[in-house]
């Protein structure tokens, strides 16, 4: 009995020493993520690998999509090299933990900016890169024209998403009774809709547009004009690192500001000898905005050269030349009636 006790005590002793060693190491690390990234030589970006238009894998194995381009822009801002980035595909469940633990430096993965995610999940959001909203798709011949017509309908929805909660909120508000049919993947939910076992399918409008193109006769289906919820999608970083958050924030603003100035991937060099002081400051010809952010002087030029301005990024993945042909709508610049607006670079 005494031998057992001694053994147990010695085991506990060893264990506590190991634990103490761990905590000591943790206390030491306080430097900004930006320093860590510069030392490492690449940005680790948490992206979605299975959302059409936002993040997916091309046949040649490279990542592509709008969120992927945002991450590339950040890498270009830090290193002047859009390839200095490692993509980490993340599932919806693990995305927040991956940011909290420092697995990824930045999360650009169709994440809706909400109060609780900002406050209690420990994320710090950069500006919104895509204003989405939840929509509803129905069959044309069903005669459904608005949410009120959905009384008693079966609606398929993905489980565990804000989409499911929004649907419940909205329908309760309107006093409509309906039957939610919950699936754990978008594919299954769409398949159920296409087979006709449900009357409607709801998800973000951007996804609805892409899903509609894959239905066997897309013109038989119509997306209701009502928007059920606001879904502003924004990149995020770990809370409490204002320096790194600043880099991500201003990289996004760079994309938006570049479109406002009309600076594109192709013509960026011609703007370098522009007389306009605002543009000169923006491109780093004058002033020290880059240094203030902890970035190279010409980070904006690098960002634009790497991915283009916001409009170019949008059109490349969601614009008229893609199968989605998604209208800019809210995602236009403020000058064109949209919501994208960059504070002044000065």
């Amino acid at each position: 009995m005494r031998r057992r006790l001694i053994a147990l005590l010695s085991f506990l002793l060893v264990f506590s020493v190991v634990l103490a060693g761990c905590s000591e190491k943790e206390a030491k690390v306080t430097k900004s993520r930006l320093e860590v990234i510069k030392e490492r030589g690449k940005v680790v970006g948490g992206v979605n690998a299975d959302i059409p238009g936002f993040g997916y894998v091309e046949s040649d194995g490279s990542y592509s999509g709008m969120d992927v381009d945002i991450t590339k822009a950040i890498a270009a801002a830090v290193f002047g090299d859009a390839t200095a980035v490692e993509f980490r595909p993340l599932s919806a469940e693990e995305r927040f933990i991956a940011v909290q633990t420092g697995e990824v430096d930045v999360l650009a993965r169709n994440t809706t900016l909400t109060t609780s995610r900002d406050a209690s999940v420990g994320l710090a959001f950069a500006p919104v890169t895509f204003y989405d909203g939840q929509g509803m798709i129905v069959r044309k011949d069903s005669g459904i024209e608005s949410l009120e017509d959905l009384e008693g309908a079966r609606i398929s929805v993905e489980s565990g998403t804000t989409t499911e909660l929004n649907l419940a909120d909205q329908m309760r508000k309107l006093g409509i009774s309906y039957e939610p049919v919950v699936f754990d993947s978008q594919d299954a939910a769409v398949a159920a809709y296409e087979q006709g076992s449900v009357d409607a399918y709801t998800t973000d409008r951007s996804a609805l547009v892409s899903r509609r193109t894959t239905l066997s006769v897309p013109d038989d289906h119509v997306i209701l004009s009502e928007v059920i919820s606001k879904e502003p999608l924004a990149p995020s970083v770990k809370d409490g690192d204002s320096k790194w958050q600043g880099v991500v924030t201003w990289t996004v603003y760079t994309l938006i500001q570049a479109e406002e100035y009309g600076i594109t991937q192709d013509n960026v060099d011609t703007f370098l000898d522009s007389e306009d002081p605002e543009i000169r400051r923006f491109l780093g010809v004058e002033g020290d905005l880059g240094e203030q952010l902890g970035l190279p002087k010409d980070f904006a030029v690098q960002v634009i050269k790497a991915v283009g301005n916001y409009g170019e990024v949008y059109n490349r993945h969601l614009g008229p030349d893609t199968i989605f042909d998604l209208e800019r709508g809210l995602n236009s610049l403020w000058t064109e009636g949209g919501l994208h607006y960059s504070p002044p670079f000065r």
Binding site: A49, D50, I51, P52, G53, G55, Y56, V57, E58, S59, S64, P89, D187, S210, R211, T213, T214, L215, T322, I323, F324
Partner: peptide, 14 residues
């Protein structure tokens, strides 16, 4: 996982 990624390529939707 790769299969899931591939079916999200707009070229191969559905």
């Amino acid at each position: 996982g790769m299969g899931k990624n591939i079916i999200s390529n707009p070229e191969f939707l559905g």
